[in-house]
């Protein structure tokens, strides 16, 4: 799974710390999600999409490997 959290976060001029505070997680969580090391739970993914004002399927994109 790919994600464009960083792109939308920067579009709203949020720092990782601010996004972390708004979604109630640590900055390390946001770093790991942006790097693709960690796939968030549905709850956190929805929180991020609400905070970044973008639809969840635009934020997290399934790639071919996810369908195998």
């Amino acid at each position: 799974m790919e994600n464009v959290v960083k792109k939308y976060r920067e579009r709203l001029s949020f720092t990782q710390e601010q996004l972390a505070n708004l979604t109630g997680v640590s900055r390390q969580s946001i770093i790991s999600i942006e790097k693709g090391h960690y796939i968030p739970t549905t709850v956190l993914a929805l929180k991020i999409s609400v905070v970044l004002k973008v639809r969840i399927e635009e934020l997290f994109i399934l790639n071919d490997e996810d369908w195998k």
Partner: peptide, 11 residues
């Protein structure tokens, strides 16, 4: 618990 015990820490 860690200072901020979130889902990533649990993972």
């Amino acid at each position: 618990a860690e200072k901020k015990e979130d889902e990533y820490v649990q993972y």
